[in-house]
Design a protein around this nucleic acid. Structure first.
Lengths: 115, 115
DNA sequence: GCTTTATATAACAATTTGCTTATATACTGA
DNA sequence: TCAGTATATAAGCAAATTGTTATATAAAGC
């Protein structure tokens, strides 16, 4: 259950600005479920590797994700302790669990292993 | 208490796209509290009348607000029965009730009467 | 050290956004 | 009917966004 927090208009709208892109919203939804390696995400989404990298950078700069370097790879996951956590969770909770795009992405993820 | 609903990625991101603008977010926050006449909003925000009108149009087109014509004036308020209602409420609930911009707007509102 | 693989950054084009000013529409009251 | 007030729409512009391709960086393994 997401607790209510107090965000300024600035922080709130900055966070919404990041979430409003469909690709990025789905990306973050996945990152709340488990950690993903960048190369897995690149295979799952129909955009170039730099595009994925740039989306992740936005999340990194906003402090919404945790990045972990392991060997050649970088793993990302949602940071549940970030100040915007309650907002992000309540927004993502509105997403239909059976949303076609989301289901398709999860399906793709199953067939992919990084390394 | 906002109930959880199921929105598609499309509807969800379209709604977030509307909410991510600071002016528009504050505008909608006010419209959830009580109805406002356009001319009141124009006096309260430091933007031109067409700018306010255009923000309201976005909300109207997204089905988030109710418009009521009374005489020469048009009154707007948030439509709590819209499909995105739970999302909107949970987003606005994250806004600090003492947010400086919000407090200032409410203060301005007190000094304004339309007609 | 060189090559391969993973990832980030830079530079750029197309599109979208949020304002502005100018103008149209519509209601009100003398 | 005309003038004033309220609101919407149109046109135009600067800034921001999201993708692309090209390139830089860094780790891994031969």
């Amino acid at each position: 259950m997401a607790t209510t927090q107090s965000l300024s208009t600035g922080t709130l709208t900055e966070t919404l600005k990041i979430l409003h892109d469909p690709t990025r919203l789905l990306l973050l939804k996945l990152l709340t479920e488990k950690e993903y390696c960048v190369c897995e995400l690149v295979e799952m989404f129909d955009i170039s590797q730099p595009a994925v990298s740039q989306h992740l950078r936005k999340y990194r700069q906003a402090g919404l994700v945790i990045e972990e370097k392991r060997g050649q790879w970088r793993y990302y996951q949602f940071d549940p302790s970030c100040p915007q956590s309650a907002l992000v969770k309540s927004v993502l909770a509105q997403l239909d669990a059976q949303d076609e795009q989301l289901v398709q992405l999860r399906h793709k993820a199953e067939a992919i292993t990084c390394s």
